[in-house]
Amino acid sequence: MTRALRRRLAAFLHRHAGVRLSLLLSAPMLWLGVAYLGALAALFLSALWSTDTFTGDLVKEVTWANFQELLTAEVYRTITLRSVGVAAAVTLIDLVIAFPMAFAMAKLASPRAQRWLVIAVLTPLWASYLVKAYAWRVLLSSDGVLGWGYGLTATVITLSYLWLPYMILPIYAGLERLPNSLLEAAGDLGARGWRTFRTVVWPLAFPAVIAGSIFTFSLSLGDYITVKIVGGRSQLIGNVVYDNIGAAGNLPFAAAVATVPVVIMLVYLAAVRRTGALENL
């Protein structure tokens, strides 16, 4: 491109703010619109189809049968509740472990130690998910170091371990932004530790906690591998989706099941929004 042409183009963009903006936004909007919302729409649409039980082909006629089955069969309710329970437990456990850790990292450690601690938190993410899950399988097996056996508890423990960094990092980032002077001021005004935490630290760190919980909650809700490895005989929503795609080739029903975690996350995000935490992120 010649210099003159480049200059003319620059001048044109300078004068036309609208064109400039649309050029800048087109890539992210395309991603959001096509790749993300488009995929969700396709998911919902295919959930309204069915498969021909005779040939296994897709029947592209709208039917609510999949959702009807999902809502009426008791087993899916049980599995949904179990999955939400596991996700909530994992989130809670991660919060209890992550908060003190993030606080120590952000407020007590020296700047040098802080860097090393962040690296230490990130290190487990470098190892494969499967390796970590299998490591827990060995730990939990009846002749293993822990020997607690498999089941839902084992699943919650393993998932808590896997997603812990996703809880620590947002809280750490949130607490780091919290000025030390606020803590000192609280102390000067006579607040003890617990009161300072309740009235200063927690409200200011709350959006970060929410951010972390969105990670741990949604990651746990969609997981189906950990529960296969350490879950014993239990199954979660993800397993139902997987079984219907992989084994039965029943894509429409799998899509219908997959809308359940989407709906749960939408409800969760709406609830979070009411608390106002999203505005402060």
Binding site: T53, A73, Y76, T78, R233, Q235, V240, D243, A248, N250
Partner: peptide, 15 residues
């Protein structure tokens, strides 16, 4: 019973 029903039953069996 076709395989789709086997799959649903399997989900139910595992509970």
């Amino acid at each position: 019973k076709d395989y789709a029903e086997w799959t649903r039953a399997w989900t139910e069996i595992k509970g």
